[in-house]
Every structure is written in C-alpha cells, then in structure tokens.
Simulated scan of single mutants.
Amino acid sequence: MNFRRFGKTNQNISEIGLGTWQVGGKWGSTFDHKLAENILNTAADNGINFIDSADVYSDGESERAIGNFLKTRSEKFFVATKCGRQINPHTNEGYTPAVLRKYVEDSLKRLQLETLDLVQLHCPPTQVFYRPEIFGLFEDLKTEGKVQNLGISVEKVEEALKGIEFNNVVSVQIIFNMFRQRPCELFFEQAKKKDVGVIVRVPLASGLLTGKYTKDTSFEAGDHRFFNRNGEMFDKGETFSGIDYNTGLEAVAVLKELFSGQLNLAEIALRWILMFENVSTVIPGASRPEQVVENLNCLQQPALSDLQMSQAKEIYLKYFKNTIHQWW
C-alpha cells in the first residue's frame, strides 16, 4: 500500500480507501453484517487505513458495522463519516447547529467512538456553504473533543471552492473520474494552496468504468442506477456521474481500444485518478471482499504515459464536456 499526506491533518492515509455505501451488500439489498465484517477485514488486511461512511448509509448500519469492526482490530484507522442527508426535506433551512450536533452524537454512538477523526457535511444545499454558523458549530464540537476534523462532501466545484474559504475545513470529498474531469482544474489548484485534502468518490462512474456493462445490463429496483438516473431521489451526478448511460458506453468502448493491452479497465480508471498528486485518497466501494482486492490491483499498474493522459482528456472533451462540465 502507498500512503499520501491528508492535507493539513498531517495524517498519512492509504491511496485507496474504502467507501462503505454498499459494504453490507449490493445497493437495495438487506444489510448483511457478516459480509460487512468480511469486507472491512479484507480492506484492513491489505493495508487500507481510510474508511468513509455516512449516517444515512443503510440507515446507520454501515456505521454500526464499522464500530464493531474497529473493536476487533489493533491497527489505527482514519474513520470519516458524514451528516446532514437525514434532513427531510433536504433544504438549507433544515440545517441548524442543533440538528447537526445530534447527528454527530448519534454517529459517535453507532461507531462506538469518543471522537470522530473526520465528519463531513454530506452534500448540503449550496446555500449552506454561505453560513458561518454551521461551520462554527464544528469548532465547538472540536473544543468538546467530539470531532477532530471537519470536511465537506460536495456535488459542485462551486461548493468546494466556497467551502474551503472556511479555515477549519480540512478536506473535500468530490466526484472525479475519467468522465468527470472538471475538479482537476481550478479546484485542485486552490485545494493545494490551502493544504486541503481531496477524497475522490464515484471513481468508477457507478461501475461504468469497469467496462462490464452493456445496453442490456439491468439493475435491481433498489439500486440507484435504476431509480435515480434523472435525479429522482438525489443529485443525478451521483449516478453514472450524471452522464447519459449510452454515451458512457460509447466512451468506454473507446477507452477499451486505447488500453487494449489491459485486462481490467477499472484498474486503469483508478490509476488515472492517482496520477493527480492533489488527490489524497480514492474511495471505491465494495459489495463483496473480492472487489476490495480487485480495486487494489490498480496499485500494480504502471503510471500512465503523457500520451495516454492526453488521449483520456480528449475522450472527455469529445463525449462529456459540452453536457456536464459546467453543471458540476
């Protein structure tokens, strides 16, 4: 495992972390705590020390599984969670210091921790990033010892840039992959200037960048790739990175030609992200232990050449920039 400095926290975290949205099984399935235990242990056994969760993942079961797991291991893990998405309706007005404080305290109980390594605002409405009292709450929680660090998870580059104006924001979690390349422009530059860590989520565009899907692939009713393609439940950028599914398949076909000597496109897609030094960690999910190992295989891939990076950029410009670049 390789490690990178996590911004102003000065912690060293694994280049590949573990996202736990689906750690208890496939999206839409009943949460399987034994499966979650196996996935978490596989990650730890292979050197992963960064685990990302949220209080809404499987209605808190993801956090409970992590809390139980931590009790069985002696290693030091950097555990990040998120809060705010429980607010319903999910509006700016729903974000209050009292509500967020309760969410943090509930996460501490489920994780069986006295302090959170990192708590992130979970993709709040854009207006929240203009409210100093929300960010001030987390200074109070730090003083009380309940929180070590504050981060933000965002949908838009605009929100990331606004959020890091608050000095107590140590990290930004953002969607970044071969099909969503905008963050590597101004945002990465500003994050470096402010010594802010960057957590990359949706690195495989909800599985599109594995190269395994076709026009005939079907998804179960409880899977967001079935019910959220147009943003019916939450920001559509979280599903297939917000791109048109069939256009994504066309771009994947071109990528397969570009990297024709490679057996696994997912490894290339993850290695592409790690080519950017501003990235602190990438957090692909896993619904079975084998997927953890498969994701880690990207660390054995050689660095992409300048020509390959340029060609990947050309694919983005051709297929996606005109439709999604300015949106997120």
Rank of each mutant, 00 (worst) to 15 (best):
A303R: 10
V293G: 08
V169E: 07
Y95S: 03
E232V: 03
G47T: 07
F240E: 02
T9I: 08
K82I: 06
Q127Y: 00
A205P: 08
V147Y: 04
R225V: 10
W328C: 12
T30G: 09
E144Y: 04
L161F: 05
D195V: 11
V279C: 05
T115Y: 07
Q86S: 09
E139W: 05
Q311P: 03
F6C: 09
N295Y: 03
Y103W: 00
N46A: 07
L111K: 02
L299K: 01
Q301A: 13
M275Y: 02
K236E: 11
T143L: 14
W27T: 12
S218T: 11
A43R: 01
T126N: 13
N322L: 07
E37K: 12
K146E: 08
T217C: 09
K162M: 09
S29A: 13
A253N: 15
L258P: 02
F77V: 06
F227Q: 01
F129E: 01
P124K: 04
F138S: 03
G7H: 08
I324V: 15
P183V: 00
V202H: 01
I87G: 05
Y130L: 14
E185A: 14
S58K: 10
H90R: 11
R110H: 09
F31Q: 09
G94F: 06
L304C: 05
Y319D: 06
E63S: 06
M309H: 07
V99P: 01
K34Y: 14
L249H: 07
V279H: 02
R288M: 06
F179R: 04
P183N: 04
G211D: 03
A312Q: 04
V104A: 10
V119W: 04
E144P: 03
A221E: 15
L70H: 05
Q22V: 15
L249F: 08
Y130G: 14
A253Y: 06
H90G: 10
A98T: 15
K313A: 13
